[in-house]
């Protein structure tokens, strides 16, 4: 059983399909990254999961049953476009929004105290939000997302709009929330963050889910027999580039420095790695020999390009 599932979700906006038969699966306790180019439909899917808009067909299944409005209290949501009441006092509006999520006033106050102490911003409690700097407002926004102790967190582009210091802070908090057992879903087009913290990803392109699964599984399945070889520069100046040629592989991207040669190779289909390795070892002094596993950025670009060519 999945923690959260969307099943054949379709959403249409005046003529164009924002989501076309999208089924994603999120495991409990994992961090799920929702990837895709701008306008692919990520935010629409997130809005549907948040009960902000309703799908035209399909459903959202939460803990094995259809998600209801009552489940919203268990979700913390940070929208892509941040914003709070500018003229309302920080503590007052945090408590107000937590109460709308079903917390009692006292619980909300207590939770707020915990987070204000944690982020060291207690002195701002009675300031109006508009009087705070942007960075401070972002911290408040994050606190409002998590203060009602949700078990499921949805962040829409959590790292955009935050300054680097806050982005790091948010990243650490996300990992800590995961360690405490929360399930987390976020959308992003920042690929570096995906490998760093995501366990699973779903790639949406032009309203369709085109790739989904465990991050390492996906990377493994996209291996293309590429290796990076680094050797010491041959002492004998007679040794030329022909020493690189082999029946077992093709090579490219050679870089020659004063001490080292590095190049990439792609093995031929039948060739096995020990044979390649020993062939190179016979000619050069090997420093490293490593397989190149494609990163998410490459997979992302390649997948999207493949679809566009079709």
């Amino acid at each position: 059983m999945y923690y959260l599932e969307t099943s054949h979700v379709v959403k249409q906006y005046s003529g164009h399909k924002a989501l076309d038969d999208v089924s994603i699966q999120v495991h409990e306790g994992k961090i799920y990254g929702l990837l895709g180019p701008n306008g692919a439909g990520k935010s629409t899917l997130i809005r549907i999961i948040n009960h902000i808009t309703a799908p035209d067909s399909g459903q959202v299944i939460f803990n094995g049953r259809q998600m209801t409005a009552a489940d919203m209290a268990r979700i913390g949501y940070l929208p892509e476009e941040r914003g709070l009441y500018k003229k309302m006092k920080v503590a007052e509006q945090a408590i107000y929004l937590a109460r709308l999520k079903g917390m009692t006033r006292n619980d909300a106050r207590e939770s707020l105290r915990y987070w204000f102490d944690k982020f060291d911003i207690r002195a701002w409690a009675d300031k109006k939000l508009g009087e705070l700097s942007k960075g401070m407002q972002q911290k408040v926004q994050f606190i409002i997302t998590v203060m009602h102790r949700p078990e499921f967190l949805i962040f829409d582009e959590p790292f955009s709009g935050f300054d680097p210091v806050n982005a790091q802070l948010i990243r650490n908090e996300i990992l800590e929330l995961k360690a405490q057992g929360a399930t987390i879903m976020f959308s992003t087009h920042n690929m570096a963050s995906v490998e760093e913290i995501c366990d699973e990803i779903g790639l949406i392109n032009r309203s369709r889910l085109v790739l989904q699964g465990d991050v390492d599984d996906i990377r493994e399945s996209h291996r293309q027999g590429q290796y990076l070889v680094k050797v010491r520069r041959p002492a004998d100046p007679q040794v030329g580039l022909q020493a690189l040629d082999s029946q077992l592989y093709s090579w490219n991207s050679l870089v020659r420095s004063s001490h080292y040669w590095t190049w990439q190779l792609r093995r031929e289909q039948q060739a096995d790695i020990p044979a390649i390795f020993s062939q190179i070892a016979a000619r050069f002094d090997i420093i490293s020999f490593e397989e190149l596993i494609p990163d998410m950025n490459e997979i992302f670009i390649k997948t999207v390009q493949n679809i566009q060519q079709q």
């Binding site: 948040n50 902000i52 949501y77 929208p79 941040r82 009441y85 929004l97």
Partner: peptide, 16 residues
């Protein structure tokens, strides 16, 4: 005000 400050999205994720 609620719409232009975008807080409306947070609120309607909690209430209708």
């Amino acid at each position: 005000e609620e719409k232009s400050s975008r807080i409306v999205e947070i609120i309607v994720s909690s209430v209708k």
